[in-house]
């Protein structure tokens, strides 16, 4: 009986150990097959590498360190060196997917970096791999490939935004572009925020957006708004218009050190504290001076 128990116990123990090992040892980060084969829509050039380096410095370096120097941040799981074989043996699609979706503690960059920027980072990382040969770029044609010009108009009172889209013909003449998908974005501290769904331009090349009335802006409610042409690939925002509009909700952030507080500087000490301290000090030292005067009197009295 005892033996049987021990056997079961041992078996359960082994199973638990193995599963624990599997969990800790295998970094399971499955990339969907169709994404694996995705390729960059543009050719990597020294310019894309340079821009990619900039983006990398600002967004990736704090954890991954400098590629090739193996000086990544000491966190668990280790972020690893992007120049290493483990990284370089991935397809561009896999890299793109991982940068886009993230997996804690790796942040999700899909909303922070544009697709173009993500590809530029990949071109930078690939520059450390001498054997890398870029797959032929596949540029999907869609509305985004049309040469269009955007203009934005704002009705502050009703919080409405109009985006006018005009197609520029080869002879430089402009005609209203119909059937173009326009996406509205707002710049936030960390990445861009998508506002509502894309809308399609009408025959006059116009779309109308109802802008949310409660989106927090700075102290004056100014928001940086972008209207972009969204093509089927959802890839490049070559055609876009930006504007800083005072259309958000003004938010006055009250600093924690504005009011009198325990954690503030001396001049902002709580009044009750200054009073308690000073009154106690004056009282006790008042008595001390009284005693000193008494001592003087003691010496003088006969």
């Amino acid at each position: 009986m005892m033996k049987k128990f021990l056997g079961i116990f041992f078996f359960v123990f082994i199973v638990l150990r193995i599963s624990a090992f599997a969990q800790s040892a295998a970094p399971v980060w499955v990339v969907p097959k169709e994404v694996k084969e995705k390729v960059c829509p543009f050719q990597f050039t020294p310019e894309t590498v340079k821009t990619g380096e900039n983006v990398f410095q600002k967004n990736c370096k704090s954890c991954h360190g400098d590629p090739g120097k193996q000086n990544w941040a000491k966190i668990n799981p280790p972020p690893g060196d992007p120049a290493s074989v483990v990284f370089q043996q991935q397809t561009d699609g896999e890299m793109f997917y991982r940068v886009t979706t993230g997996k804690a503690p790796m942040p999700q960059f899909g909303n922070i970096l544009s697709e173009e920027e993500r590809w530029q980072v990949i071109s930078y990382i690939r520059s450390f791999n001498a054997n890398y040969v870029q797959p032929t770029p596949i540029v999907k044609t869609g509305s985004g490939s049309k040469n269009v010009k955007l203009r934005m108009y704002c009705n502050y009172r009703h919080k409405k935004l109009y985006v006018l889209c005009k197609e520029i013909k080869q002879d430089k003449s402009e005609i209203p572009a119909k059937g173009i998908d326009i996406q509205l974005n707002v710049k936030r501290y960390f990445g861009t925020l998508t506002v509502g769904n894309p809308k399609t331009t009408n025959a006059r090349g116009l779309v109308l957006f109802d802008f949310p009335s409660d989106l927090p802006g700075g102290p004056s409610g100014i928001l940086e708004i972008m209207a972009r042409v969204k093509d089927e690939t959802g890839l490049l925002y070559a055609n876009q218009v930006k504007a800083r509009l005072s259309i958000g909700k003004p938010v006055m952030v009250k600093s924690l050190t504005d009011a009198r507080a325990m954690w503030s500087v001396r001049s902002k000490a709580p009044v009750w504290l200054i009073l308690t301290f000073s009154l106690s000090l004056v009282t006790v030292w008042g008595f001390i001076f009284y005693i000193l005067i008494s001592l003087k009197k003691l010496k003088q009295t006969i």
């Binding site: 503030s264 500087v265 000490a269 709580p270 504290l273 006790v284 005693i291």
Partner: peptide
């Protein structure tokens, strides 16, 4: 530069005061 909020200021104040009081008491 002592802050009213800091126990360090309270401490130097009260140590000095207590010393003066004790010395006066001994002397008197």
């Amino acid at each position: 530069y002592g802050r009213f909020q800091s126990p360090i200021l309270w401490d130097v104040t009260v140590v000095t005061t207590y010393f003066v009081l004790s010395a006066l008491l001994l002397f008197l």
